[in-house]
């Protein structure tokens, strides 16, 4: 069990200029601030996501975690600072980046196989070839029987699995996930986590995942980034070197868990209540 802790003050200094990263960072945020009108979603965030690693962003809702993913995906541009992917500045959606949301967002007007083939078709693959490849990928996850069916014929877990297959179909080097299993029940969620880990290991892709679920974060992450709001800032970065598969009973993990739990509770409380309300709550 190797836990390295970095306090916010000791965070590695980011270069202020838009220099090309010299390290093997898959994504790099350099002093990024993003505002929507008057609202500052994230402020002065610097983060390096090493290639091939599984990074989990955790924090209370509304702390700008999803905004960070949108920036990495090139769907939004930073107000200040820079975002690079594989050393190049992100200016728009990239072919190497895939996105997954809490809602599976499969297109209901297409069959399951057409959904999986979508990214391949967008990259110019011929229809027949793309559909054949999609069926192959669906077969790998045991969903052959559903290839010709619409997504509405699938269960919640199956849909999210298809969404994963669709995202991985184009062999992205960077996978951005925004609470991908948030809508699933506990059991399905655990199965999906295991499935994600094995897919990730086989693909060698870099994963950045946003979650509310501390347990999920501890089970999956190589590196845990703790956010506080609002505006969103990085409070803490943790490396978790525990080997996988991990057990929920691992004393090291439980120790981190307990500490982070307290931290998250405080952050959530800060987001929900005003100073005066908190004082009143504390006095009871």
């Amino acid at each position: 069990m190797n836990v390295r802790l970095t306090a916010p003050g000791e965070a590695p200094a980011m270069p202020a200029a838009r220099t090309v990263a010299t390290s093997n960072a898959a994504v790099e945020f350099g002093r990024v601030t993003k505002s929507f009108g008057d609202v500052t979603a994230i402020e002065d965030v610097s983060l390096r996501v090493p290639a091939g690693e599984f990074t989990v962003l955790i924090g209370p809702s509304g702390c700008g975690k999803s905004t960070l993913l949108s920036l990495a995906a090139g769907l939004e541009a930073p107000t200040e600072g820079f975002v690079t992917a594989h050393g190049r500045e992100v200016t728009g959606p990239s072919r190497d980046t895939a996105l997954i949301f809490q809602q599976h967002n499969l297109f209901p007007w297409m069959t399951t196989e057409a959904n999986v083939a979508y990214g391949l078709r967008s990259r110019g693959m011929a229809r027949r070839e793309a559909l054949a490849r999609a069926r192959e990928l669906l077969a790998k996850v045991g969903l052959s029987d559903f290839a010709k069916k619409p997504p509405t014929a699938l269960s919640g877990g199956m849909r999210q699995r298809v969404a994963l297959v669709r995202a991985f179909a184009t062999e992205p080097t960077l996978l951005l996930m925004d609470e991908p299993f948030g809508a699933l029940d506990h059991q399905t969620r655990k199965i999906m986590q295991a499935y994600l880990l094995s897919t990730w290991r086989d693909s060698g892709a870099t994963v950045v995942m946003v979650t509310h679920d501390l347990d999920e974060a501890l089970m999956l992450a190589d590196r845990l980034v703790l956010f506080t709001g609002q505006p969103g800032r990085i409070a803490e970065t943790l490396d978790i070197a525990a080997p996988r598969p991990r057990s929920r009973d691992d004393p090291g993990l439980r120790e981190i868990g307990t500490r982070l739990e307290r931290h998250l509770a405080a952050a959530a409380e800060a987001a929900e209540f005003t100073e005066a309300e908190r004082a009143r709550l504390a006095s009871r």
Partner: peptide, 11 residues
């Protein structure tokens, strides 16, 4: 989300 997914898939 539909637009984001489609754009990120390269549409």
């Amino acid at each position: 989300e539909y637009r984001k997914v489609a754009r990120s898939l390269g549409a």
